[in-house]
């Protein structure tokens, strides 16, 4: 099984290398990637937004939506970790504290049996 996986991964890696055959030479200034859209960024980044660092210009302006999405990914990750891990945190003095401890199981059971949109008559 292990050997099989390694062979499969080897084949995959070989396949990936095989694909690089038709990629442009390393560092080739005439490759499609170097002559494509990127020339616009290099030429116009400063005039468009007075930003010398083209990476920043592309990141925050030309492809700002990607960055927005990425920002949301980070928030989503934070949210996910909280959702997965943070439920109740016991303080040193033994009281329930910290985040998100409005409902415990008893209340939940009441809600499941109750009426209304949230199960408590509201």
């Amino acid at each position: 099984m292990k050997l099989f996986a390694i062979i499969l991964i080897g084949i995959l890696a070989g396949f990936v290398v095989w694909g690089t055959n038709d990629l442009p030479e390393r560092g080739d200034p005439t490759s499609p990637a170097s002559t494509g859209v990127s020339t616009y960024y290099i030429e116009n980044a400063y005039t468009d937004s007075k930003t010398p660092n083209m990476v920043t210009a592309v990141l925050a302006d030309y492809r700002g939506f990607d960055t927005f999405g990425e920002a949301v990914v980070v928030v989503a990750a934070g949210l996910s970790c909280l959702l997965i891990l943070l439920r109740r945190r016991r303080r040193e003095d033994g009281t329930e504290g910290g985040l998100f401890s409005q409902a415990d199981a008893e209340k939940a059971a009441r809600m499941a049996a109750g009426e209304g949109l949230y199960g408590d008559g509201t």
Partner: peptide, 29 residues
């Protein structure tokens, strides 16, 4: 969602709704 969440994930609903919309937003995007 609300009733089912109250039963199955008590105390975490406040975080679940934003996650749900995030899923939707991601898929829509």
């Amino acid at each position: 969602a609300p009733r089912s969440l109250a039963l199955e994930t008590p105390g975490r609903q406040g975080m679940v709704y934003p996650s749900m919309t995030l899923v939707l937003a991601g898929l829509v995007g």
